[in-house]
C-alpha cells in the first residue's frame, strides 16, 4: 500500500462516511428475546405428528426469525435500497431455481431396466 501514488486534489465526493455509524440501533435484547420465543415455538411445533403441518409452521417461523435477524441485527432496516435489491435478486434466483427444478425432480419415478 505504501507504494501508492495518490493523485492531488479531492479524492472523490464523500459518498458516505467510511466509519461513522449512521444507522439506528434497535433494542437488541428485545429482539433476542423474541427470537428465543420463536425458537421455543419451533421446537414445540415439531411435536405435532403431521409432518406437513410441522413443515409449514416451522419453515414460516424460520423465515420470520431470519428476517428479524437480517432487519435488526444486520441493520437491513437502515441500509440503502441497493442492498435490498441485491438480496431480492438472490431470492428471485433461488425461486426460479426451485420452480425450474421442481417438475424434473419431484414427480419423476425412478426406473431401472429389470434384469439389466
Amino acid at each position: 500500500m505504501s507504494t501508492h501514488g495518490k493523485p492531488q486534489g479531492l479524492e472523490h465526493e464523500l459518498w458516505v462516511p467510511a466509519e461513522d455509524d449512521y444507522h439506528g440501533h434497535p433494542n437488541y435484547l428485545k429482539v433476542y428475546i423474541y427470537l428465543l420465543i420463536l425458537f421455543a415455538i419451533t421446537v414445540f411445533a415439531s411435536l405435532i405428528p403431521n409432518p406437513m403441518i410441522v413443515f409449514i409452521v416451522v419453515f414460516s417461523i424460520s423465515i420470520i426469525k431470519a428476517s428479524m435477524v437480517i432487519l435488526n441485527f444486520m441493520h437491513l432496516k437502515w441500509e440503502p435500497n441497493i442492498i435490498w435489491y441485491m438480496l431480492l435478486l438472490a431470492l428471485i434466483a433461488l425461486a426460479f431455481l426451485f420452480l425450474g427444478l421442481y417438475p424434473d425432480t419431484v414427480p419423476i419415478e425412478r426406473f431401472f431396466v429389470p434384469n439389466g
Partner: peptide
C-alpha cells in the same frame, strides 16, 4: 497512466 492514474483527481 501513472501510479494512481491521475496527477490531479478529475472532476
Amino acid at each position: 497512466p501513472p501510479h494512481g492514474n491521475f496527477e490531479v483527481y478529475p472532476v
